[in-house]
Amino acid sequence: MMDKAWVPARGPGLPWAAGEYELLRDQVRRFVEEEIKPRADRWEEDGFIPRPILRRMGELGFFGIRYPAEYGGAEMDATASTIFAEELGRSTYGGVAIATLVHTDMASVHVFHDGTKAQRARWMPGIISGEVITAVAITEPDAGSDVKAISTRARREGDSYILDGTKLYITNGVHADLYCVAAKTDPSAGSHGITMFLVEKGTPGLSVARQLDKHGWRSSDTAELVFDGCRIPAENVLGAEGLGFYSIMRNFQNERLVLAGMAIGAAEAAIDMTLAWVKARRAFGGVLWDMQAIRERLAMLSAKVEAGRQFLYATAWRMAADEDCLREVSMVKAVCGELVNEVMYTCLQFHGAMGLMRESPIERMARDARVLSIGGGATEVMLDVVASMS
Rank of each mutant, 00 (worst) to 15 (best):
P68D: 09
P68R: 10
A69F: 10
E70D: 11
E70Q: 14
E70K: 14
G72S: 09
G73I: 09
G73S: 11
E75Q: 14
E75F: 03
M76L: 15
D77K: 01
A78F: 00
A80E: 06
A80K: 05
S81I: 02
T82G: 00
I83W: 06
I83C: 00
F84E: 01
A85N: 04
E86I: 09
E86H: 08
E87Q: 14
E87L: 13
E87Y: 06
L88T: 05
G89L: 11
G89F: 09
R90N: 06
S91T: 07
T92P: 03
Y93I: 06
Y93K: 08
Y93F: 15
G95V: 07
V96K: 04
A97H: 02
A97N: 01
A97R: 01
I98E: 05
I98N: 07
A99H: 10
T100Q: 05
L101D: 01
V102F: 09
T104H: 04
D105K: 00
M106P: 06
A107C: 08
A107D: 04
S108M: 15
S108K: 14
V109P: 01
V109R: 03
H110N: 11
H110W: 04
V111K: 10
F112H: 15
H113S: 13
H113F: 13
G115T: 05
G115W: 03
G115Q: 05
G115F: 05
T116I: 10
